[in-house]
Simulated scan of single mutants.
Amino acid sequence: MSWFDINNTLVTIPLGAGYAMSWIEAVATVFGLLCIWLASQEKTINYPFGLINVTLFAVIFFQIQLYGLLLLQLFFFCANVYGWYAWTHPSAAGKPLQVRWLSRRQLLVIVALALVGIGLLALYIDPVFATLATCSVDLLNLLGANLDMPQLQPDEFPLWDAMITVLSLIAQVLMTRKFVENWMLWVLVNIVSVGVYAAQGVYAMAIEYAILTFIAANGTREWIATAKANGSRSAFTQGASS
């Protein structure tokens, strides 16, 4: 079980004062990168990699007492399970799920939900994550974890954290339905994450998200080409031709 301990250091990265990367963090990161890369190639096998990634990060967040983020991993776990199913089963019309763009109406709804979600979460981010942490601890204690309730500090970047959280949830859902826009959201999420992690001095995570930015940008390019081949047009093109 020591392999799962975040204090079991694999390598110390010479960044800042030195960043001790544990075995579990290294493996979770590799599986996360592979998951995103395989998803950008429209490979269904990305989902097993994603399930391992979110499970290992849940273990990490449990150990460093970030229980709100731990609970979010449960959402990502369920989204990966659903995405795996959706990508491998035909729709009600009997057709396989294809890469495509959102319609104009769908895009407007998504933009509205994103703006409202980001605004509300930025305003109430501390009580929201405190509630998530409380729910996580209560759930784990029901399973016999015997944890003390954590004392959470105020969020240092409420707007940026809210943007990362809300857009990540939306992007994950859009990916399960093979909408091109998911990659554009991931590019934005990753760019903001690089800035936040760099500002917090977590340089290894900043580098990881910089790599993810390039993978998401490549995913955007490839899925745009695939959507075009599938006969799907972006909302802007739909508007221009109507």
Score class of each variant (00 low, 15 high):
residue 45 I to V: 12
residue 61 F to R: 01
residue 86 A to W: 09
residue 96 P to F: 10
residue 88 T to C: 15
residue 79 A to D: 08
residue 52 I to T: 13
residue 128 V to S: 08
residue 70 L to K: 07
residue 77 F to Q: 00
residue 87 W to P: 08
residue 122 A to I: 05
residue 92 A to M: 15
residue 34 L to H: 11
residue 70 L to F: 08
residue 108 L to D: 03
residue 55 T to H: 04
residue 17 A to P: 00
residue 17 A to C: 00
residue 56 L to E: 03
residue 133 A to G: 06
residue 142 L to F: 05
residue 71 L to G: 08
residue 35 C to I: 04
residue 33 L to S: 07
residue 57 F to M: 04
residue 17 A to S: 00
residue 27 V to Q: 08
residue 146 N to P: 08
residue 110 I to L: 04
residue 16 G to H: 00
residue 94 G to A: 09
residue 61 F to S: 01
residue 59 V to E: 08
residue 128 V to M: 02
residue 54 V to K: 03
residue 127 P to R: 05
residue 107 L to G: 11
residue 138 D to G: 05
residue 24 I to C: 03
residue 92 A to H: 15
residue 13 I to D: 04
residue 143 L to I: 09
residue 20 A to C: 02
residue 139 L to A: 13
residue 119 G to A: 01
residue 72 L to V: 08
residue 38 L to F: 11
residue 84 W to S: 07
residue 22 S to P: 00
residue 125 I to K: 14
residue 135 C to L: 15
residue 71 L to N: 09
residue 90 P to N: 12
residue 125 I to P: 13
residue 109 V to D: 02
residue 85 Y to W: 13
residue 60 I to L: 04
residue 76 F to A: 07
residue 44 T to E: 13
residue 19 Y to H: 06
residue 140 L to T: 06
residue 116 V to F: 05
residue 75 F to A: 12
residue 90 P to W: 10
residue 126 D to F: 06
residue 51 L to D: 06
residue 62 F to S: 03
residue 111 V to D: 00
residue 124 Y to V: 07
residue 17 A to K: 00
residue 81 V to K: 10
residue 11 V to F: 09
residue 141 N to P: 11
residue 75 F to T: 12
residue 91 S to C: 13
residue 99 V to S: 09
residue 132 L to W: 10
residue 37 W to A: 12
residue 49 F to P: 15
residue 88 T to E: 14
residue 70 L to G: 06
residue 114 A to C: 03
residue 28 A to H: 04
residue 114 A to K: 02
residue 66 L to V: 01
residue 115 L to S: 07
residue 107 L to T: 08
residue 33 L to V: 09
residue 134 T to C: 12
residue 89 H to G: 10
residue 119 G to M: 03
residue 11 V to Y: 09
residue 75 F to S: 13
residue 54 V to M: 04
residue 135 C to Q: 14
residue 26 A to K: 04
residue 30 V to G: 05
residue 93 A to Y: 14
residue 22 S to V: 00
residue 70 L to A: 10
residue 135 C to D: 15
residue 61 F to G: 01
residue 81 V to G: 13
residue 74 L to T: 11
residue 76 F to K: 04
residue 41 Q to F: 09
residue 77 F to C: 04
residue 138 D to I: 12
residue 131 T to I: 06
residue 81 V to D: 08
residue 84 W to Y: 11
residue 137 V to F: 10
residue 13 I to Q: 04
residue 109 V to R: 08
residue 12 T to I: 04
residue 107 L to C: 12
residue 146 N to H: 12
residue 82 Y to S: 06
residue 134 T to K: 15
residue 80 N to C: 08
residue 85 Y to T: 13
residue 49 F to H: 14
residue 46 N to V: 07
residue 66 L to H: 02
residue 119 G to Q: 02
residue 14 P to T: 01
residue 86 A to E: 14
residue 43 K to R: 12
residue 102 L to S: 05
residue 100 R to Y: 11
residue 84 W to K: 06
residue 136 S to V: 03
residue 99 V to E: 11
residue 61 F to E: 03
residue 104 R to V: 00
residue 23 W to Q: 08
residue 55 T to F: 06
residue 114 A to D: 00
residue 128 V to R: 02
residue 92 A to Q: 15
residue 113 L to H: 02
residue 23 W to K: 06
